[in-house]
Amino acid sequence: MSVLQTTQTPLPDAAPLRRPAAVRLTWLLVGIAVLAALCVASIAFGARDVSFDDVLAGLAGRTGDVSQAAVVARLPRTVLALLVGAALAMAGTAMQAVTRNPLADPGILGISGGAALAVVIGIAFFGMSGPYAFIVAAVAGAAVAAVFVYAVGSLGRGGATPLKLALAGAAATAAFMSLVSAILLPRADIAEMFRFWQIGGVGGATWDRIVVVAPVLAVGAIVCLAWARGMNSLALGDDVAAGLGEHVFRTRLVAFAGAVVLAGAATAIAGPIAFVGLIVPHMCRLLVGTDHRWLLPFSAIAGAALLVAADIVGRVIARPEEIEVGIITALIGAPFFIWIVRRQKVREL
């Protein structure tokens, strides 16, 4: 059995494949407007609130006072939240499509944990320091973790059911993060550097890091978007997709590779942030249907909005300190995960 062969459990939400173009376009424009408003709020709110005039002055590059300087400092943080949120949401959407598993998500399936472990091993034992090395290690770790979790989840009767994959992913994530802690604890210098990175956050964003990771995320996004039509065919079942002329294995392999690149690179730059790839695709299907040519870009917008909103909440509710976005998304995502399991009644063990 191929590591990318999937359970036949259908995705939730019986939304039709096609929605009226006017409806989809309306929701897309609404999503863009909400995202733009959240970006302005992300720049304006934090440990120190700034006025709208200061926001405009900061966007123009002026740093004449503390408020304007704060705006300039928050810009890379906001952009990184946009990129990481969009990447994780698209990765989750693609994983749910190619595995036909409603519980698929980079965090739940252990992919983010595998990427984190690979980065820490590279730093601790191989002296890895360059940002490109971080991304390569994270993507490789994500790929190995994906294969490992699927292999474990496929054991026993029934193959890789959604719940077995989720349990295998949760166990693998716990093991990966335990290994990360075991490696970091005796190394105070590395442990301090990655103390917040382990939780998952965008607080250390810089333009240099964004310039490095943006092209990699763009490649992963382009791969997923290019295979959106193939994902629609997979939703009809392997036999029907093959009958329509779709190369099922190739479609799964390439689309899953794009998702792994997105998840690995996002983890390398922002740490393991869970549940974005689970929450967003399900919510977006309710609005724009299951056509992945619309669902993928809409998921990217919604994922970016979710992570920017989580970052704003983390900064506002704990002033003058802040709560990392990984904690906020976990608080939102854990109840949603339980709801999905109960709604789908995925009880096979």
Rank of each mutant, 00 (worst) to 15 (best):
A242P: 08
L88K: 09
R77N: 07
I328G: 04
P10D: 05
P320F: 09
F256K: 09
A257I: 06
R74W: 06
L75F: 06
T6G: 13
A41K: 07
E192T: 14
A160F: 07
A268Y: 13
I332C: 11
P76G: 03
W207G: 03
L244R: 00
G314T: 13
T78N: 00
T251A: 05
L286I: 06
L4H: 10
A86P: 00
G237N: 01
G114L: 01
A270L: 10
P162I: 00
T251W: 05
A188W: 06
A221Q: 05
F125I: 10
I190E: 05
A86T: 03
C284M: 15
K345L: 14
I279H: 02
I183H: 10
V308R: 08
A334C: 06
D54W: 07
R209D: 14
A305S: 15
A309K: 12
D311W: 09
H282K: 04
L184S: 09
G122Y: 09
V136C: 11
F176S: 12
A318K: 01
G326M: 07
D13C: 08
P335T: 00
A304Q: 11
A33M: 11
A137W: 08
S299A: 07
V313T: 14
F125M: 09
D311I: 11
A305D: 11
F134G: 11
A255R: 06
D189E: 14
V72C: 03
I269W: 11
V144A: 07
R343S: 05
T63L: 09
V23Q: 15
S112T: 15
A302H: 03
G64F: 02
A318G: 02
L307P: 13
P16I: 09
L225H: 02
A305T: 12
A334T: 01
G58T: 04
P10N: 03
A330G: 14
S154T: 14
R285W: 05
I312A: 11
A57M: 03
P12Y: 00
S2L: 04
V346G: 01
R74N: 05
L236Y: 04
T7P: 00
P131L: 15
A265C: 12
L253R: 07
R18D: 10
V144H: 08
F125R: 09
L287H: 05
P186S: 08
V260T: 07
E321S: 13
A44P: 08
G237K: 01
A168E: 02
A191T: 03
T173K: 12
V3D: 08
A69F: 11
A265S: 13
V98N: 01
I108F: 01
G114K: 01
A241K: 03
G114F: 01
W227C: 09
G64P: 06
A138T: 01
V212W: 14
V149K: 00
I32F: 13
G271M: 11
Q96T: 01
L109H: 03
R319E: 12
V55Q: 01
